[in-house]
Amino acid sequence: MKHLYFLFLFISITCFGQLEPPAELQDYYSGIDFSETGLTLKTSLSNLTINKHTNILSYGWDAIQATDQNPSNASNVLLIYGWEDGSDSDCTNDLERNINLNGGSNCDYNREHIYAKSKATPAMDNTGPGADGHHIRASDVQRNGERDNLPFADGTGNSGKVNSNTNWYPGDNWKGDVARVIMYMYIRYENQCLPTNIGVGSSASTPDDMIDLFLEWNAEDPVSSYEDNRNAYHVSENTYAQGNRNPFIDNPYLATLIWGGPVAENRWSSLGVTDKSIVNIRMHPNPTTHNLVYFTTTEKLEVVVYNLLGKKIMSHTINNSKNFIDISILSKGVYLVKLNSNEVSITKKLIIQ
């Protein structure tokens, strides 16, 4: 049933026109047809990412010292999961550390596998995927040990254990980085690195093993200059460059086109787009237990509600004077809400609890 949902979703999304990478990325993505969506686009990006990975790194310090430098201070590396400027006595919270303080002692930094090695199928060692520079990050030794191999789960604020210490929240400022790493590992190593093995969430609304947790984090936490710098390093002539990029850093919206979910930032222009404003419309509350669903919009929209089999249930027009629909006739479950504005449309998922 979920495959029917995504077929319908991606037919709607393609109305926005084909994505066009910026000039500096067009050569790298020259073989990709960005009119594709869903698992077809995923396969194309997977093949590209695998084929471009021409330099298989060893598990050493040199690569991480080159890629994890603070863009504002090359003498330091940024520490994933960190947030504090070093002014308090707890070094485990530090956001950055001197690039030469690497090792295994307290207040050193070491190498964190974002996709925990033991959660892969089969498990990774420190070669191949276990040495992939896109998912190994500098991390405080003790904070890395505290995370251990805990699966990621949602939370708020700074990094730490959640759900009675059974899961790990990477922190508000790092959750997008983590999501995009997991997406990369999935398309690069496929079934060995399933998102369902490393995160707590549901794959019910995606066409494969992606989970809603990482789609939400990808949309909520935009790409940073640190991520861009790491990505650019790996396609340069540098000694420790792998040759491939993380496409979800280049454009988080690619995840939306493949798996749906919340609309992530689109960093590229689109060809043939007639109206982009509809993509930013918010439908709330969602999930809902109420009889009314509201839409934040300044334009006139046709709202059509379908069940997961594609059967039309209701249709309404909303505008500034009436920005809601009455869903009291609907039973609990998942529905598809298609928003039409002139010749442009997008489909959102509505959950009634």
Rank of each mutant, 00 (worst) to 15 (best):
E216R: 00
E237I: 10
N251P: 06
N158W: 11
G82L: 11
I325G: 07
N307E: 09
G310N: 13
L150T: 11
F10P: 01
E146I: 10
K312R: 15
N319S: 07
V293Y: 12
C193G: 03
V344E: 07
L309E: 09
T40F: 00
A116M: 00
R180F: 01
A74F: 09
N163T: 14
K117A: 08
Y109H: 14
V303A: 02
R97F: 05
L4K: 14
F6W: 07
G176Y: 05
L215R: 03
I187R: 06
M124V: 00
P252V: 01
N191E: 07
I351A: 13
N291L: 08
R143C: 07
G155H: 01
N55R: 13
L101D: 07
N73G: 01
Y294P: 14
V235Q: 08
P195Y: 02
K276F: 07
E190R: 11
T206Q: 14
I318Q: 06
P222H: 04
Y5H: 13
K338E: 11
S236V: 10
W259P: 15
M1E: 06
Q65M: 00
V293I: 11
E220V: 02
M210E: 08
K338C: 15
G201T: 13
W174L: 05
T37Y: 04
P285H: 15
M314Y: 11
R111H: 12
I346T: 14
V235S: 08
S331L: 12
K42L: 11
I50P: 05
L215Q: 00
N73Q: 07
A123N: 14
I258W: 00
Y59D: 10
W83S: 03
N163I: 15
L48Q: 00
S89W: 10
V279M: 12
I329P: 15
L25S: 07
K300Q: 10
V303N: 13
S321C: 04
N251Y: 01
T166W: 13
K332N: 09
L25V: 08
S118K: 14
I187V: 12
G31T: 07
S202L: 07
L41R: 00
P285W: 12
V305T: 06
S89V: 15
S225Q: 01
S341R: 15
D154V: 02
